[in-house]
Structures are given as C-alpha cells and as structure tokens.
Design a protein around this nucleic acid. Sequence first.
DNA 1: CATGATATATACATATCTGTATATGGGTTT
DNA 2: AAACCCATATACAGATATGTATATATCATG
Lengths: 187, 187
Amino acid sequence: MSTLKSKILVVATDLFQTRGINSTGVDTIVAVAGTTKMTLYKYFTSKENLILEVLNKGHQDFQTWLSDKLNTNTKKPSEKLQKLFEFIEEWVTSPNFRGMGFIKASAEFPNEESPVHQLSSEQSRQFRQYISSLAAEANIKDADGLALQLSLLFEGAVQAEQMKRGSGAMKYAKKAAKILIDEALTA
Amino acid sequence: MSTLKSKILVVATDLFQTRGINSTGVDTIVAVAGTTKMTLYKYFTSKENLILEVLNKGHQDFQTWLSDKLNTNTKKPSEKLQKLFEFIEEWVTSPNFRGMGFIKASAEFPNEESPVHQLSSEQSRQFRQYISSLAAEANIKDADGLALQLSLLFEGAVQAEQMKRGSGAMKYAKKAAKILIDEALTA
DNA sequence: CATGATATATACATATCTGTATATGGGTTT
DNA sequence: AAACCCATATACAGATATGTATATATCATG
C-alpha cells in the first residue's frame, strides 16, 4: 500500500475519533496528512469509502492483535475467556489506542440503510460472535448470553474511556467480567 | 410553554435520535414540525441551544420518571437497587422511548470544549451518581465502583437497543446487573 | 371594527461541505 | 534529454448548512 494512502488512513482514524466523523471534512484530513484532495480521491472513491476503509482497518488490527495474543498466551478455552479482558485492557490503555471505530460510527450513522451503519453493526456482531465462540469452547451453557453481557461491558467501557481517558472504567469492567464469567462457569 | 416550542422539541428529539444530530438540519426539523425557521429561532437562540434543551428535557423526563417509580414502588434501599433495572427496562422498551440523548450526543460531540459534550458528560455523571447513592444507602462498600459497572451495562444496552430494537440486550443487562448487585451485597 | 402580538412565506447572506477540472512541478525510467 | 507517472496547487461547481431580513397573514382581545 502506498505510504500516502496509509498516512491518510492513519490521520483520518485519528481525526474521526477526536473530532467526530461527520464533523471532519476531507479538507482537514488532507491538510493534516500533508497532501491534497486530488490525492485522497485517487485512493478513495468517496468520503464514505474512506470511512469504510478506516473502520475495516481498525477492526482487522484489533481482531488480529487479540487473536494472536490469546493464542500465544493461553491454551485452555476457559483460560482464554478469563484473560480476554486483561488483553482488551492492554489494548485500550496502550498509547496508540485510537478508539473503537464501530462504536462511534454506529452512533453517528443511525440510519440502517447507511453502509457505514451496516459495517459497524456487522463488526459489533462479529466481535460478539468471537466472544461467544470462546465461551462455547469453555462449555458455557448460554454462550451467546454471556457474550452479549461481556460486549455490553466492553462497549460501555470503551465509550467511557473515549470520553475521559484514565476514567478507570476498564478496570471495573474487568472486575465485572470476572464475576459474570465465574457465575456462568459454575452455573 | 408554547405548544409550538414543545412540538419543535419533540420533533427534534425524534429526528436527532433516528437520523443523528449533525445530520439533521433545522430546515428538516421545522418542516416535520409544520412550522418555519423564523419561529424556531424565536424560541431557540441557535441550533446548539436547541440541542441543549432537547438533552435537558430528555434527561429530566427520565430522572423524574425513574425517581418517582422507585419511590412509590420500593421502600428498602437494597430493594431500590434490585428493582432499578426492572424499571429501566420498562422505560427503554416503552413505545414512546426515544433513546437516551446524552449517550448519542457524547459520541457526536467528542470535543471536550463543546457545550453539548459538557452537558452530556455531566448528565452521564449525574446518572452514575444517582446509582451510587442508591448503592451507598444499601450499605455497599464500593458504591462508586458498582455504580460505574451498572452504568456501563446500562449505556451498553441502550446503545444496543438503539442500534436494533428488540435486540434483547436489556434483558441480559438486567441479568448481569442482578449478579453484580448480589455479589456486591454479599462481599 | 381596529389593534397588536404571533406565525408564516419567501428570499437571501454567508459559510462549509463533497467532489472535480485544469494546469503545473518533480522525480524515475528508457 | 524526453516521456511518463505521481503528486501538487488552485480554482470552481453544486449542494446544503445556519441564521437573518422583510413583508404578509391570522386571530384573539379591546
């Protein structure tokens, strides 16, 4: 991938997160990225296309990192589930954390016909499905139910952390997750 | 309050929720409300002022309803805490539910200097404080911690419910809340 | 009927947004 | 050196946004 395209993606991810997607014009993006609109529209067919690529990249980066982390550091299925929020906290509190795109995007694009809404909705579903598969491997009865509960904690904590860095929300979300997982394992 | 001003508030609340705040122009609002921009700007000094009034009304309506419901239906502090999510579910699944404004607003206005962001942030804090006071009255040790966890569940569930009505998120949030409250009460 | 407040209709000023057209600069390869 | 590709600079078209100016209509009350 061209370095300029990559640069635009990074800058757009950052600006979308800190200023909002609809409030960030392409003029601002190219100015910060140190290029021009002509170049942006050579790599991205439209602003909507840029948003979709930003979402895809963010989600892939996160999922790849999380899967690798879990696969190399844990073995037993129940262990994976227990360690999940440890790693998520590590990701969220890392200095290069730029927020979870799909959480913001679904709020800014509530129209169900919008491709941006559809993608963010799909990413949310995929993440929940991933947690559910971990829960199922750990022989948890209502795996989908636990996955939904954990994703609620996760999305709530990320939003709180986005609103105010160092809010400590992730710490308490982690504690709550442990309680819910233990309860589900012994049920 | 003038009926027209009230009508504008209701319509704006609805449109902000279903189409997003930034994506909803004042032209659309007055068209749906069956009035004109001149009238809107007689009652509201600016669009930002309208947004702030919409947020205030939504928050007041919710807090008033919830407090009344808790005070008339429960007596013991621990009972209030236990019934909290029952009533919240009732509110969220009621047909005239229009979403929680401050959750959306904080996502669309991430800039901390924005008055809209500040108000929604303050409302989120107030709601958490209210839960914390209920927990404290029930003699829970880490009242703030539990309040934060419950608010994460609540905000996550509301957002999920906003994204897809009938998602069942609130049902599982309620179950999770019960587990966390029981754990905190016996700790 | 007449007065006066309230709402409407319509047009407009100003700004900002996405996306494109056109002409120019600066390297790399042949 | 010449052709070529990539990026830049700049200007602009078209749409839409907020907010205002001006003139008109409605309608209850004196």
